[in-house]
Design a protein around this nucleic acid. Structure first.
Lengths: 139, 139
DNA sequence: GTCGATGCAAAATGTTTGCAAGACC
DNA sequence: GGTCTTGCAAACATTTTGCATCGAC
């Protein structure tokens, strides 16, 4: 019924991994709270042992169900591009709000040019912008 | 004699902070190893207490002597733009090499366009690219 | 029933704090 | 000499591990 859940369970099945209650609950929490942190998950899912939460997060990162992003001065966890469109983050240094923005059209060109200039092959990139959001910049 | 040291000591003086041996050694280590990690500093500077290293790193970040960057899956510490030109990082996922690249000319425009579109004011940004370096992509 | 996943407990690692002693200006 | 800085020790937080038990398939 839920398309995100279908993708998620499909990934587990494809890798011959069990669909357990704990794994479902952790996935659901990340979906609801994304982006969130490990400690938030530990605090919210008190019925699940922390060791399980750490192990599951590692697993999800390996399976590319989620990814780590760097916002402000902390890591957060969010669903991978398999579940939502490729985007980046603006972080308001005053109110700590996070605004997602779509991949800019010209970023691809920019990275291609860099790849040529520096002879590397890009497989992944992150653009993180900090500053003041609309409300905070007016004050 | 050393221009980086002059800038560094100038910042401490301007803020009425002592220029201690520990602070000099920690600054020197970061300069040599940049980008480096807290644990590397703790292991290298065995004569300095870890508490001092943590406190000094916090201080340097507040003073904008250094900044935290996010490479691969870890934080690293490197000298701020006061000591070297504004740049970003390419990280080779195979050999773990880090290649610095200068701020691309068109990135500024790209961020200005985003600022208009999303009504935020950017004060800082990071572009991190992962992939394969010249050598590793050939294999 | 089998094998992988979880919980528990403990250890390892990383970070912060209070306070007395020491170093800088 | 006064004040800021450091070291030490302990506390606190975060993450990892081994192993016995439990649950998914």
């Amino acid at each position: 019924m839920n398309p995100l859940n279908d993708i998620f369970e499909g990934i587990l099945k494809k890798n011959h991994l069990s669909i357990t209650n704990q794994r479902k609950q952790i996935f659901d929490s990340i979906t609801k709270l994304s982006p969130t942190s490990t400690s938030t998950l530990i605090n919210d899912l008190t019925q699940i042992d922390r060791a399980t939460i750490y192990r599951t997060i590692d697993l999800y990162i390996k399976l590319k169900v989620i990814k780590k992003i760097y916002i402000g001065f902390k890591y957060k966890l969010e669903l991978s591009d398999l579940f939502s469109s490729h985007h980046h983050h603006f972080y308001c240094i005053k109110c700590h709000q996070i605004i997602d923005f779509d991949e800019p059209d010209d970023l691809d060109n920019l990275i291609n040019n860099l790849s040529l200039k520096y002879s590397f092959k890009s497989t992944e990139h992150r653009l993180e912008i900090n500053g003041l959001c609309q409300k905070c910049k007016e004050v």
